[in-house]
């Protein structure tokens, strides 16, 4: 609903009629999705609904059986995976991890960490980070590439509610400042609704999609999420306040 005068720009990535099979199981069937510059699109759906598979298809990590993915030429994609399972035998501190993005200037690295709210972790071993710190460090690595499109797979899993609210605010700020497009995978219904421009509700196929307010009253959505959905108090984000 482009709030606060956030112009929706060019289409960055578009998936048309995407179907994916894993063995005999159809994981995705005829899914359409697109993300444009300046908007936050959130993918919600129950476990096993194909959210991660769709993201992988859009990132061209997995080739769909049918349908196609068009990525605007020349754009940079930043990706944060759901989790990082670094073997404990691999000595790797945050600085080294961030340097793998290609940026090695220590000042830039410190600044980006401060920007995502993870100060003072530069010299820490990556496997010693807390869940929330890890998510922020992953985000920092993606941002170092100065992405046009940011793809975040479950960025708030394992983060407490307070941390989640903060994280969604951070994501909105990144969108506002950098004017990138953001594709978010989540199942925190409540927060997603408040922090998103467009919601795509997935369950193997697209159940419904649109503005958060519309999706939350869509029968298909209510059926899919049942109890959980009715417990969600959707508050439309009227921006008469400022995020600190």
């Amino acid at each position: 609903m482009p709030d606060g005068g956030n112009p929706i720009g060019e289409v960055l990535v578009r998936g048309t009629g995407i179907s994916v099979r894993h063995g005999r199981r159809t994981v995705l069937h005829n899914v359409d999705i697109q993300v444009s510059r300046g908007e936050i699109v959130t993918l919600i759906g129950p476990n096993g609904s194909g959210k991660t598979t769709l993201v992988r298809a859009l990132l061209e990590l997995e080739s769909p059986e049918s349908g196609q993915v068009q990525k605007t030429a020349g754009i940079t994609v930043g990706y944060t995976p759901q989790q990082l399972a670094v073997d404990r035998t691999l000595p790797l501190d945050v600085r080294r991890f961030l340097e793998m993005s290609g940026v090695t200037d220590p000042e830039v690295l410190s600044n980006i960490l401060a920007d995502v709210g993870a100060r003072n972790v530069l010299r820490q071993e990556i496997r010693m980070l807390s869940g929330g710190e890890m998510k922020r460090v992953l985000l920092a690595r993606a941002l170092l590439r100065e992405p046009d499109l940011l793809v975040l797979d479950e960025p708030t899993a394992n983060v407490d509610v307070h941390g989640q609210v903060e994280f969604y605010e951070l994501i909105r700020r990144i969108r506002d400042e950098r004017q990138c497009g953001i594709l978010l995978v989540s199942h925190d219904l409540h927060l997603v609704m408040s922090a998103t421009d467009r919601v795509v509700c997935l369950n193997g196929h697209v159940c419904c999609s649109g503005l958060p307010g519309d999706v939350s009253t869509d029968p298909a959505y209510l059926e899919l999420f049942g109890e959980a959905a009715s417990a969600v108090a959707v508050y439309a984000h009227d921006h008469d306040h400022h995020h600190a």
Partner: peptide, 17 residues
Amino acid sequence: WKDLIAITVHEDLARTE
């Protein structure tokens, strides 16, 4: 070396980069 470390840390992340 560099690519191997990147893949060891996270294969999909390395591929998208």
